[in-house]
Simulated scan of single mutants.
Amino acid sequence: MLVVFSLDTWGVIGIIVISFYVVIPYLLFAVPVQVLFNKHPKKFSVFYFCLYIFFSLPAVFIYSSVLNFDFSMYILTTKNYYAISLLAALFFWFWDSVFLQKKSSAS
C-alpha cells in the first residue's frame, strides 16, 4: 500500500526515496550481522533469531530517532517500536536463513 500510495503521489521519485530509506538501515545494521552469522551458518537457528531481535532493538531506536529528530526515550514505551523491531528481526532472520546461509551445519 505504501508503494501504491507513493506511486500515485510521487511516482518514480517516491519509489527511489522509499528504497533509499530501506537500504540504509539494511546496510548499516543487517549486513554486518549477516556476515558474522555466515561464518558459522545455521539455517533457522533460534539462537540467531534471538540475536537478530537483540540487534534490531537498538537499530530501530537509532533509525527512528534520526528520522524523527527525537532522541528521547519515549519511543521505548510505544508498541510500534517493539512490533517493528520484532518484524525486522523476523524478516532478516528468515531472509538470512533461506537465501544467504551457504550451508547448514549438522547439529
Score class of each variant (00 low, 15 high):
Val23Glu: 04
Tyr26Val: 11
Ser105Cys: 12
Ile15Phe: 13
Ile18Lys: 06
Thr78Ile: 06
Phe5Ile: 14
Phe71His: 11
Cys50Asp: 07
Phe37Leu: 08
Leu7His: 12
Ile75Pro: 11
Val60Ile: 13
Leu67Phe: 11
Ile16Ser: 14
Met73Glu: 10
Val98Thr: 01
Ser107Tyr: 08
Phe54Lys: 02
Trp93Val: 00
Met1Asp: 11
Ser85Arg: 04
Lys42Leu: 10
Tyr21Ile: 04
Asp96Ile: 02
Ile13Ala: 14
Leu57Val: 08
Ile75Leu: 13
Met1Leu: 12
Pro32Phe: 01
Asn68Ile: 09
Met1Val: 07
Ile24Pro: 10
Ser105Glu: 10
Ile13Asn: 15
Ser97Tyr: 00
Val3Glu: 11
Ala59Met: 02
Ser97Phe: 00
Asn38Asp: 11
Pro41Arg: 10
Leu27Gln: 09
Phe5Asp: 15
Ala88Leu: 08
Pro58Asn: 01
Asp8Trp: 13
Gly14Lys: 05
Ser97Asp: 07
Val22Ile: 13
Ile24Leu: 08
Ser56Pro: 02
Thr77Asp: 05
Phe71Val: 10
Tyr21Phe: 10
Phe29Gln: 01
Ser56Thr: 02
Thr77Trp: 06
Ser107Gln: 12
Tyr21Met: 06
Pro58Gln: 02
Ser85Lys: 01
Lys102Phe: 03
Tyr26Glu: 04
Thr78Asp: 07
Tyr48Phe: 12
Leu86Val: 06
Phe94Gln: 05
Val60Glu: 08
Ala88Arg: 01
Ala89Glu: 00
Val31Asn: 05
Asn68Thr: 11
Leu2Gln: 14
Pro32Glu: 02
Gln101Gly: 05
Phe92Val: 00
Lys43Thr: 07
Ala83Lys: 11
Gly11Ala: 12
Val23Cys: 07
Pro32Leu: 10
Gln101Met: 13
Lys42Asp: 10
Ile16Met: 12
Ile16Val: 14
Ala59Val: 01
